[in-house]
Amino acid sequence: MGALLLGSYACSDEQDFDQFDDLSITPTLASSIFSVEADEPFINSFTTVNTFYTNTFNFDAFNEEFVAERLLEGTITYEFENTTSKPLIITIEFLDEGGGVLDTEIFDIPAGPAPAFTIEVDYGPGGKPLDILANTSDIRITGINLGDTTSTSTEPDPKIVMKSAAEFLFRLK
């Protein structure tokens, strides 16, 4: 019985709960932002204006002050694939609550068929200011056809595909 008490005593150490103060938690959150597709007949249908696509959508990922204050850095990845016969310009605008433009990304997309390509834009240390992301309320995407409205690609199902995803690093503690 004495050995059992000695074993129990030896296994119970005083716990140090102050270790939590030294803990650093920095999770990475990955998310899709948008995916847009427009086929060549749709692009050709806009004969009086060159803008074939415009859409503004809500992006309140950082509208909570708690979240915005803990954002350390982020990367937004844009992917484009154009199999149409059209050279295009894609403009992406980050808007604040009042509709003011915080930042603009302009992508010159060559006529297809062209291989898909990816562009990464960094925010935070070594990149654009984090305030752009923290203050973004809406994102506006505009597509402009720089070509004609009659030509048609020989590719099957010619279209422009635009996708975007992001990774954000936060400090929780």
Rank of each mutant, 00 (worst) to 15 (best):
M1A: 13
L5A: 12
S8G: 15
Y9T: 14
S12N: 14
S12M: 14
D13R: 15
D13P: 04
Q15K: 12
D16L: 14
Q19L: 15
D22A: 13
I25Q: 04
T26G: 01
P27R: 07
P27Y: 09
T28R: 06
A30V: 15
S31T: 15
E40W: 02
E40C: 02
N44G: 05
F46L: 05
F52D: 00
T54S: 15
F62E: 04
F62M: 11
E64C: 07
E65K: 05
E65P: 02
V67L: 12
A68W: 01
A68I: 05
E69G: 15
R70I: 13
T75C: 12
T77W: 02
T77S: 11
F80Y: 00
F80K: 02
E81I: 00
N82V: 06
T84F: 05
I90E: 09
L95Y: 05
D96F: 02
V101D: 07
D103F: 10
D103A: 15
D103M: 10
F107D: 05
D108Y: 07
P110G: 13
F117L: 03
T118I: 12
E120K: 09
V121P: 02
Y123N: 02
G127V: 10
K128E: 06
P129H: 14
D131F: 04
N135H: 11
T136Q: 09
S137W: 05
D138M: 08
T142L: 03
I144A: 06
I144S: 03
L146C: 01
G147P: 02
D148R: 10
T150Y: 04
T150C: 02
S151Y: 03
D157T: 07
K159D: 02
E167N: 08
L172K: 01
